[in-house]
Design a protein around this nucleic acid. Structure first.
Lengths: 198, 198
DNA sequence: CAGCGTAAATTGAACGCCCAACCAATCTAT
DNA sequence: ATAGATTGGTTGGGCGTTCAATTTACGCTG
């Protein structure tokens, strides 16, 4: 394994361990030592790969939403060459955030805590803005094509993004998580008549 | 001032200071000393009125939603003696959570952090369950009268409660808070055609 | 009403614990 | 052989909590 590859591996291991630790025991209890232990690494190694704890947690925050972005990108290249129909784009954008493979209990719990800390950590606030920006723009792109009115579509996209975040919080804080189909129902009510899942 | 009254006053001062501190600097930085300082009291007094820090924070968590419950109760006795029309009950339930006097930036920021910690503090989890239970039952009571179908109304109430929580999170984490009318728009889209504000 | 005694309120310093960050020493792979 | 990866103990600081000392305010007595 090359130098750069090992570097990436260790960073990824620590980030995953950070997400898992924060989800399991909470941000307050997720010390650098415990995170390193979860990753089966020594405590000192954290500061070899990250400037400080906030730097590691910021990377963990980003990681909680990365699968959603990946799922959305994947859905859009299912039919390569062909333009994706607007309605499918909308469904893809919503599913990218609600599919059980993306919205796991661990990621939801970590993401919710990081988001709650957004007003107090500069780096976190930037990450949240970026996530929201991408999320809204994906929804908007699908909605303008369906809605016609650019103004209405933009407002609807903003509301839908807000509701999706609400569902992540719910998945994190309700014991047992979201009921199957519950997220889809809420989004269907909100985006009717544009959003028709399945 | 009587002994019991002073006791209540000090407790209230500490709870308010806790909410304010958590909102201003974050749970992690809101130490008992800083909370006491915010309340213009000595650091040792915290443990004279509360068993420990978690006990104080639990009281603060409760306090963040108390104004909403009070606003709802107040709205229902506007016309004493007369039965409140179901549609007004629904509007009252929604407004009790979205009115600027209830959903302040400080309360939203504190509530969001406490809620994110729900899976890690037993006392917090109980408080959240209680808040949710009351919230849903208020919405359900209004919706069954409008909807007819008890099953549908219950599901709708659950979804509406979820969306209201999402709006609180949004108010806490988006800089500048919610746009005026934004919350009402989302609830109107969700509860259409039952919810017609103003 | 004045004076006193007592119990509660309040203080602020001290204790024990744990954390993030640092670093000199050791190991490993090129 | 050398540069980077890794170790794990150390350190300085800050936290929640405790507590003995002090102040305050109420009730009782004469």
């Amino acid at each position: 394994m090359g130098r750069a590859a090992l570097d990436d591996l260790r960073r990824a291991e620590l980030v995953e361990a950070a997400v898992e630790s924060v989800a399991r025991i909470g941000v307050q209890a997720a010390t650098t030592a415990r995170i390193a232990e979860t990753a089966d690494l020594s405590p000192g190694l954290v500061h070899h790969y990250f400037a400080d704890k906030e730097d590691l947690l910021a990377a963990a925050y980003k990681a909680t939403r990365k699968p959603a972005a990946a799922a959305y990108a994947r859905a859009l290249v299912v039919a390569p060459g062909a333009a994706v129909p607007p309605r499918l784009r909308l469904i893809a954008a919503v599913e990218a955030h609600l599919t059980p493979a993306v919205l796991t209990p661990v990621r939801a719990a970590a993401w919710t805590q990081f988001t709650a800390l957004t007003p107090y950590r500069f780096a976190f606030a930037r990450i949240r803005r970026a996530q929201r920006c991408r999320q809204e723009s994906n929804l908007r792109a699908a909605l303008v094509a369906l809605e016609g009115d650019r103004q209405t579509a933009a407002a609807l996209a903003q509301t839908a993004a807000l509701a999706l975040d609400g569902l992540w919080v719910e998945a994190a804080t309700r014991e047992g998580g979201l009921a199957p189909g519950e997220g889809e129902d809420l989004m269907a009510a909100l985006l009717a008549p544009h959003y028709v899942p399945e």
